[in-house]
């Protein structure tokens, strides 16, 4: 038990030490869209833009879809992934 208490004490001491001099460092994690970063989330497109122009999307959408068989076959990266991925040795619950 003592070793666990010590472990927790030392973990918290490390965390508290982090806070010294940088207490406000992480106050606003949504608020730093500076520069031209393209990282995920920094300038993610809002999904409601088409909503207005909607009609916009109407113009872009192709003619109605027959449920073509080829649309049910995954293309893209899956082609190189499919056979290689390995299921875990023992199935989980």
């Amino acid at each position: 038990m003592n070793s666990k208490r010590n472990l927790i004490r030392s973990a918290l001491a490390g965390v508290i030490a982090l806070g010294v001099g940088s207490a406000a460092a992480q106050a606003h994690d949504g608020a730093a869209p500076a520069g031209k970063e393209k990282c995920y989330g920094i300038a993610k497109k809002g999904q409601n833009d088409c909503g207005t122009a909607t009609h916009a999307c109407a113009g872009l959408a192709k003619r109605d879809n027959q449920p073509d068989e080829w649309k049910l076959v995954a293309k893209g990266t899956c082609e190189k992934l499919g056979g290689k991925l390995k299921a875990p040795a023992a199935p989980k619950k």
């Binding site: 993610k44 497109k45 999904q47 649309k71 049910l72 995954a74 893209g76 990266t77 899956c78 992934l81």
Partner: peptide, 17 residues
């Protein structure tokens, strides 16, 4: 927009369907 990796994995036509 919410599933960019799935889109890339399966391709546009499959995703749309």
């Amino acid at each position: 927009g919410a599933h960019p990796v799935v889109v890339r994995l399966v391709g546009d036509a499959y995703f749309h369907e």
